[in-house]
Protein backbone atom coordinates (compact mmCIF):
# COMPACT_ATOMS: atom_id res chain seq x y z
CA UNK A 1 0.00 0.00 0.00
CA UNK A 2 2.55 2.51 1.04
CA UNK A 3 4.60 1.87 -2.08
CA UNK A 4 1.63 2.46 -4.32
CA UNK A 5 0.84 5.68 -2.57
CA UNK A 6 4.30 6.95 -3.14
CA UNK A 7 4.24 6.42 -6.88
CA UNK A 8 1.54 8.81 -8.12
CA UNK A 9 3.14 12.10 -6.99
CA UNK A 10 6.13 11.39 -9.22
CA UNK A 11 4.09 11.59 -12.41
CA UNK A 12 2.18 14.86 -12.71
CA UNK A 13 4.61 17.48 -14.02
CA UNK A 14 7.72 16.84 -16.09
CA UNK A 15 10.78 17.02 -13.93
CA UNK A 16 12.69 18.65 -16.77
CA UNK A 17 11.47 22.10 -15.79
CA UNK A 18 13.05 22.01 -12.34
CA UNK A 19 16.30 20.61 -13.68
CA UNK A 20 16.38 23.47 -16.18
CA UNK A 21 16.15 26.01 -13.37
CA UNK A 22 18.88 24.58 -11.18
CA UNK A 23 22.14 24.32 -13.13
CA UNK A 24 23.09 27.95 -13.48
CA UNK A 25 26.85 28.07 -13.47
CA UNK A 26 27.79 31.56 -14.61
CA UNK A 27 27.98 31.67 -18.36
CA UNK A 28 31.38 32.33 -19.94
CA UNK A 29 29.65 35.18 -21.77
CA UNK A 30 28.44 36.89 -18.60
CA UNK A 31 31.27 39.49 -18.58
CA UNK A 32 30.38 40.42 -22.18
CA UNK A 33 26.82 41.34 -21.34
CA UNK A 34 27.82 43.03 -18.06
CA UNK A 35 30.33 45.18 -19.87
CA UNK A 36 27.88 46.07 -22.60
CA UNK A 37 25.13 46.99 -20.17
CA UNK A 38 27.56 49.16 -18.20
CA UNK A 39 28.74 50.87 -21.39
CA UNK A 40 25.20 51.58 -22.55
CA UNK A 41 24.12 52.83 -19.14
CA UNK A 42 27.10 55.18 -19.02
CA UNK A 43 26.13 56.63 -22.38
CA UNK A 44 22.35 56.65 -22.21
CA UNK A 45 21.51 56.81 -18.52
CA UNK A 46 20.68 54.19 -15.92
CA UNK A 47 17.07 53.70 -17.06
CA UNK A 48 17.95 53.09 -20.74
CA UNK A 49 18.61 49.40 -20.13
CA UNK A 50 15.94 47.50 -18.26
CA UNK A 51 18.04 44.35 -17.92
CA UNK A 52 20.80 42.36 -19.54
CA UNK A 53 21.19 38.61 -19.29
CA UNK A 54 22.55 35.54 -21.02
CA UNK A 55 20.19 33.24 -22.87
CA UNK A 56 21.97 30.02 -21.97
CA UNK A 57 20.15 27.43 -24.08
CA UNK A 58 20.70 29.61 -27.15
CA UNK A 59 24.50 29.21 -27.19
CA UNK A 60 24.90 31.81 -24.43
CA UNK A 61 23.39 34.63 -26.42
CA UNK A 62 23.79 38.02 -24.72
CA UNK A 63 20.35 39.59 -24.51
CA UNK A 64 19.49 43.12 -23.46
CA UNK A 65 16.10 44.64 -22.84
CA UNK A 66 16.03 48.28 -23.83
CA UNK A 67 13.58 50.94 -22.71
CA UNK A 68 11.29 52.08 -25.52
CA UNK A 69 12.39 55.72 -25.39
CA UNK A 70 16.03 54.91 -26.09
CA UNK A 71 15.41 52.13 -28.66
CA UNK A 72 16.62 53.89 -31.80
CA UNK A 73 19.49 55.73 -30.08
CA UNK A 74 20.88 52.51 -28.70
CA UNK A 75 20.44 50.63 -31.99
CA UNK A 76 22.35 53.44 -33.72
CA UNK A 77 25.09 53.16 -31.11
CA UNK A 78 25.31 49.38 -31.43
CA UNK A 79 25.58 49.65 -35.17
CA UNK A 80 27.99 52.55 -35.51
CA UNK A 81 30.28 52.29 -32.49
CA UNK A 82 33.65 51.09 -33.69
CA UNK A 83 34.15 48.49 -30.96
CA UNK A 84 30.67 46.96 -31.36
CA UNK A 85 29.86 47.19 -35.04
CA UNK A 86 26.65 45.15 -35.06
CA UNK A 87 25.87 45.89 -38.72
CA UNK A 88 24.07 42.73 -39.76
CA UNK A 89 20.38 42.42 -38.93
CA UNK A 90 20.15 38.69 -38.58
CA UNK A 91 16.52 38.40 -37.63
CA UNK A 92 13.61 40.52 -36.49
CA UNK A 93 10.63 39.07 -34.66
CA UNK A 94 7.66 40.34 -32.72
CA UNK A 95 5.96 38.30 -30.03
CA UNK A 96 2.58 38.76 -28.41
CA UNK A 97 2.79 37.83 -24.73
CA UNK A 98 -0.87 38.80 -24.13
CA UNK A 99 0.20 41.25 -21.41
CA UNK A 100 2.49 43.12 -23.76
CA UNK A 101 4.21 42.86 -27.13
CA UNK A 102 7.90 42.31 -27.54
CA UNK A 103 10.13 43.14 -30.48
CA UNK A 104 13.42 41.26 -30.82
CA UNK A 105 16.22 42.14 -33.19
CA UNK A 106 19.07 39.67 -33.49
CA UNK A 107 22.17 41.56 -34.52
CA UNK A 108 25.43 40.11 -35.73
CA UNK A 109 28.93 41.46 -36.11
CA UNK A 110 30.35 39.41 -38.94
CA UNK A 111 33.98 40.34 -38.21
CA UNK A 112 34.09 39.44 -34.53
CA UNK A 113 31.43 36.75 -35.00
CA UNK A 114 29.58 38.18 -32.02
CA UNK A 115 25.83 37.97 -31.70
CA UNK A 116 23.41 39.90 -29.57
CA UNK A 117 19.66 40.02 -29.10
CA UNK A 118 18.05 43.37 -28.32
CA UNK A 119 14.49 43.50 -27.07
CA UNK A 120 11.92 46.13 -26.33
CA UNK A 121 8.55 45.80 -24.66
CA UNK A 122 5.52 47.55 -26.09
CA UNK A 123 2.06 48.27 -24.88
CA UNK A 124 -0.53 46.15 -26.71
CA UNK A 125 -3.00 49.00 -27.20
CA UNK A 126 -0.41 51.56 -28.14
CA UNK A 127 2.28 49.64 -30.01
CA UNK A 128 4.48 52.33 -31.50
CA UNK A 129 8.21 52.09 -32.13
CA UNK A 130 10.61 54.26 -34.12
CA UNK A 131 11.64 52.56 -37.35
CA UNK A 132 15.19 51.26 -37.72
CA UNK A 133 14.99 51.19 -41.51
CA UNK A 134 17.32 54.18 -41.81
CA UNK A 135 19.97 52.14 -39.96
CA UNK A 136 19.48 48.73 -41.52
CA UNK A 137 18.12 48.50 -45.05
CA UNK A 138 16.97 45.00 -44.14
CA UNK A 139 14.66 46.38 -41.46
CA UNK A 140 12.34 47.94 -44.03
CA UNK A 141 10.41 44.82 -45.08
CA UNK A 142 10.78 43.24 -41.66
CA UNK A 143 9.04 46.15 -40.02
CA UNK A 144 6.34 46.07 -42.65
CA UNK A 145 5.87 42.39 -41.87
CA UNK A 146 5.64 43.14 -38.15
CA UNK A 147 3.12 45.88 -38.85
CA UNK A 148 1.14 43.60 -41.13
CA UNK A 149 0.99 40.55 -38.90
CA UNK A 150 1.43 41.96 -35.41
CA UNK A 151 0.06 45.48 -35.69
CA UNK A 152 3.10 47.44 -34.56
CA UNK A 153 3.26 51.01 -35.84
CA UNK A 154 6.74 52.08 -36.90
CA UNK A 155 7.15 55.82 -36.96
CA UNK A 156 9.25 57.41 -39.72
CA UNK A 157 9.06 54.27 -41.80
CA UNK A 158 9.36 55.14 -45.51
CA UNK A 159 6.44 53.00 -46.60
CA UNK A 160 4.48 51.43 -43.77
CA UNK A 161 1.83 49.32 -45.44
CA UNK A 162 0.84 45.68 -45.50
CA UNK A 163 3.33 43.38 -47.21
CA UNK A 164 2.09 39.79 -47.03
CA UNK A 165 -1.66 40.26 -46.62
CA UNK A 166 -3.95 42.17 -49.00
CA UNK A 167 -4.25 45.91 -48.34
CA UNK A 168 -7.89 45.64 -47.26
CA UNK A 169 -7.28 42.94 -44.67
CA UNK A 170 -8.85 43.52 -41.26
CA UNK A 171 -6.79 42.90 -38.13
CA UNK A 172 -3.32 41.57 -37.43
CA UNK A 173 -3.30 37.76 -37.43
CA UNK A 174 -0.35 37.02 -35.18
CA UNK A 175 -2.01 38.78 -32.24
CA UNK A 176 -3.23 36.18 -29.81
CA UNK A 177 -6.73 37.68 -29.64
CA UNK A 178 -7.12 37.81 -33.43
CA UNK A 179 -10.34 36.41 -34.75
CA UNK A 180 -10.67 35.57 -38.41
CA UNK A 181 -13.11 37.91 -40.10
CA UNK A 182 -14.89 35.12 -41.96
CA UNK A 183 -14.93 32.64 -39.12
CA UNK A 184 -17.26 29.74 -39.69
CA UNK A 185 -17.07 29.83 -43.46
Amino acid sequence: MSEEQKKPPVRPKPAAKKVEQKPLPPSPKQPVVDELVALLRRNFGESAIVEGYINQPNDHLPTILISREKWLEILTFLRNEESLHFTYLQNASAIDYETHLEVVYHLHDLNRKERIAVKVKLDREHAVLPSASSLFAAANWNEREMYDLMGIQFTDHPELKRILLPDDWVGHPLRKDYEAFDEGV
Binding site: E20, P57, L61, N91, H106
Partner: peptide
Protein backbone atom coordinates in the same frame (compact mmCIF):
# COMPACT_ATOMS: atom_id res chain seq x y z
CA UNK B 1 7.41 16.83 -26.80
CA UNK B 2 7.23 19.45 -24.11
CA UNK B 3 9.77 22.11 -24.81
CA UNK B 4 11.04 23.92 -21.70
CA UNK B 5 10.15 27.54 -21.33
CA UNK B 6 12.57 29.80 -23.13
CA UNK B 7 13.57 31.38 -26.35
CA UNK B 8 15.99 30.34 -29.04
CA UNK B 9 17.14 31.61 -32.41
CA UNK B 10 19.33 29.51 -34.66
CA UNK B 11 20.41 30.12 -38.22
Amino acid sequence: LRVPEGEVYVG
